[in-house]
Write a protein that binds this DNA or RNA. Structure first.
Length: 121
DNA sequence: ATTCTTACA
DNA sequence: TGTAAGTA
């Protein structure tokens, strides 16, 4: 599919799609016309990219782990460098802590909303 | 009508 | 990121 279709199906602008490619997050093939030709698989890849980016991972780290994601280029277990593995484990800990903080805040709101009185006008 | 690259705001 | 330019 062409970039315009990809943009509509992923909700990501063509501009950003090209940027992801520049950062090594996507590698769509080109048609003889030079136009990018995305596959269904790339739609899922963009979902992963968005999720990881939202989680705070760098495009650098994401680019490095893309081949390991389901639907990646490799069919066999992808060899991860010790360096990347260290980065990912550090991110895992950071996200676990962040999740704990968010859960704590959620519980505070639970308590407040559960006991809140609704003033009637 | 769409996409491409490069570049500026 | 959005957009303009000049193409293909």
């Amino acid at each position: 599919m062409l970039i315009g279709t990809m943009a509509r199906q992923t909700g990501v602008s063509a501009r950003l799609l090209r940027y992801y490619e520049e950062q090594g997050l996507l590698a769509p093939r080109r048609r003889s016309s030079g136009f990018r030709d995305y596959r269904e698989q790339d739609v899922h890849a963009v979902r992963h990219i968005r999720a990881l980016l939202a989680a705070g991972l760098s495009t650098r780290a994401i680019a490095a782990l893309m081949p390991s994601l389901p639907g990646g280029a490799g069919l066999a277990p992808v060899p991860l460098s010790a360096d990347l593995l260290a980065v990912l484990r550090r991110e895992r800990v950071r996200l676990r802590d962040a999740a704990a903080s968010l859960l704590a805040a959620c519980e505070v709101l639970d308590a407040i909303t559960a006991s809140a009185q609704v003033p009637h006008c």
